[in-house]
Structures are given as structure tokens and as C-alpha cells.
Amino acid sequence: MDKLIVTLLGATVIGFIYWFFFGKKDELVQPKNVWSVLVEGGYKPSTITIPRDKPTTLTFTRTDANSCLEEIVLPDFKIKKFLPLDKEVVITIPPTKPGIYTLHCGMNMYHGKIIVV
């Protein structure tokens, strides 16, 4: 009996984990070329939509002491910056072709997307 309960409970937990981490949807937003991103347990917002062929400035502020997040990497733009705690760091992205570009932390654990439309 207890085994059945544990099994059912386990299956529910697995389902919940799946839904919790993989079930979130990217909110679609209007493209704009000035963004501020809060770095706290990830990137807020984690999906940034920017217009093509226009330079874009992203201002990152890290409020999370987790050292995993101390570095921001935009590999497609060859940008890697150290984010001091509670300080604004401005990153300028040159005009770009449409596409989906990624951004992540120094250890590639937290991810975000830059969508150029």
C-alpha cells in the first residue's frame, strides 16, 4: 500500500518538475532597443526582443549574490562582462541580423534569449 502511494506521489512530483521547468512560455513582447535586465536567479526578462539593424543597449543589474551569475556571456556578440553586485553594467549590441541569439552565465547554467526581429 505504502509502495503504491510512494510510486504515485513520485510520478506526480516528476510531472510537476517537468511542468515547472519546461512548461513555462516565453512571453512575446514588443521589440525595443533599450532594455534593463535584472539578474536574480536568472535573467528577468529572460527573453528580449530587439529590432534588427539597430544598436541595442542592455543594462544588467545583478542583485543575486550567487557567484554563478557574476558573469554574463553573449557568445554570438563576443561579449563577456563581469557583473558586480548591485551595479548597473551597460552592454551595447551592434545592429544585427534577425535570429535567435543566446545569453548565459559564465558557467552556462542560466540562460536567456535575444530575439532579433
Binding site: 515547472f20 521547468f21 513555462k24 536574480e40 536567479g41 536568472g42 535573467y43 528577468k44 529572460s46 543575486d64 549574490a65 550567487n66 554563478c68 547554467m109 542560466y110 540562460h111
Partner: peptide
């Protein structure tokens, strides 16, 4: 701390 702020964003590390 890291877990909590990650969970708020539905991410895990």
C-alpha cells in the same frame, strides 16, 4: 539563496 532565486524564475542550477 541561489536555489530560491532560481525557483522564482522557474530555473534550477
Amino acid at each position: 539563496q541561489a536555489t530560491w532565486s532560481g525557483l522564482k524564475n522557474r530555473t534550477a542550477s
